[in-house]
């Protein structure tokens, strides 16, 4: 059996993603696709933020490309990237065996539960921009943090009833560990014996350099500041519209388009932060402004059918 397990080890980054997809699909989650906007983490996807609100049951999993401009290191740091992937699982209400389900997913990607030391170490989660918090753990495998495990308690200042269970896997770090790779850029993205073998670096090194330069030194802060204000204004304007659409005569509250603007504002803020033009005091004010947008969108969402109204 042990031999079989060894044979079963994943060979590449995408292998791990595919196995997670297969595993969570098998557990009944809807396999969503990444959200088509720039976000800082998988949590920003409306499938997590908005769907954790209201009473309707929900189960979804997806890969989310995530951007943190301040973490750019020109592709040189073995662990840090300004663009990376998160794997996100959200289930509402959180099932009683969520820990066991999670551990099953680690086995599915080739972590042998008989040889490793898996631990749930206290780590409470809070997102000031989303006005959200939850309790849970960071999950350690042999001393390495491989996932975040959170029971959402509040999102956008609203109590989560029922509670959503959220699992977030940092895919690069997890895969590096499973594949035994020391530098992210050396990690095989597809199978090393494929006709065109590609490493993570083949695909992303150049982009990391380009974005690092742009994020830190080139991005036009005047334009960004304007974009922030535009997104903020548009978000409010969308939600200011009457619920009844004059053209169709239907009730259409536009929570999702408004939330897109909140996401946009949040990302623009991250870019401004990377450019170093936001002082410590201003920082809090910007975070507060994004939180106010998220709150408005959440208030609108819970008045819609998907929000359980």
């Amino acid at each position: 059996m042990r031999g079989a397990k060894l044979m079963d080890k994943p060979q590449s980054f995408q292998d791990i993603i595919l196995r997670l997809q297969a595993y969570w699909a098998g557990k009944g989650c809807a396999m969503l696709q990444p959200y088509d906007m720039e976000v800082g983490a998988g949590t920003f996807h409306p499938a997590t933020t908005l769907r954790s609100l209201g009473s309707k049951p929900w189960a979804a999993a997806y890969v989310q490309p995530s951007r943190r401009p301040t973490d750019g290191r020109y592709g040189e740091n073995p662990n840090r990237l300004q663009h990376f992937y998160q794997y996100q699982v959200v289930i509402k209400p959180s099932p009683p065996d969520l820990q066991a389900l999670y551990l099953g997913s680690l086995e599915a990607i080739g972590i042998d539960m008989d040889l490793h030391d898996i631990r749930f170490v206290e780590d409470d989660w809070e997102s000031p921009t989303l006005g959200a918090w939850g309790l849970g753990w960071e999950v350690w495998c042999d001393g390495m943090e491989v996932s975040q495990f959170t029971y959402f308690q509040q999102v956008a200042g609203m109590d989560c009833k029922p509670v959503t269970g959220e699992l977030t896997y940092g895919l690069e770090r997890l895969a590096m560990y499973v594949l035994g790779v020391d530098h992210v850029m050396d990690m095989p993205f597809n199978r090393p014996d494929a006709p065109v073998p590609l490493t993570y670096g083949d695909i992303f090194r150049q982009a990391e350099q380009e974005y690092s330069r742009w994020n830190f030194d080139v991005a036009n802060t005047d334009i960004l500041l304007k974009q922030f204000e535009d997104a903020e204004a548009e978000c409010a304007r969308i939600l200011d519209q009457p619920a009844e659409d004059p053209k169709t005569g239907r009730t259409i509250i536009m929570a999702h388009p408004a939330y897109d603007q909140a996401i946009k504002a949040s990302h623009v803020f991250n870019l401004l932060d990377a450019r170093g033009v936001i002082s410590v005091t201003e920082r809090q004010a910007y975070i507060g402004r994004v939180r106010a947008l998220t709150k408005m969108c959440a208030d609108a969402f819970v008045q819609t059918a998907a929000g359980g109204a």
Binding site: S94, L135, Y151, Q153, V163, G165
Partner: peptide, 8 residues
């Protein structure tokens, strides 16, 4: 010191 709800 800090407590939580879960599930439904």
């Amino acid at each position: 010191p800090k407590s939580m709800r879960w599930g439904a």
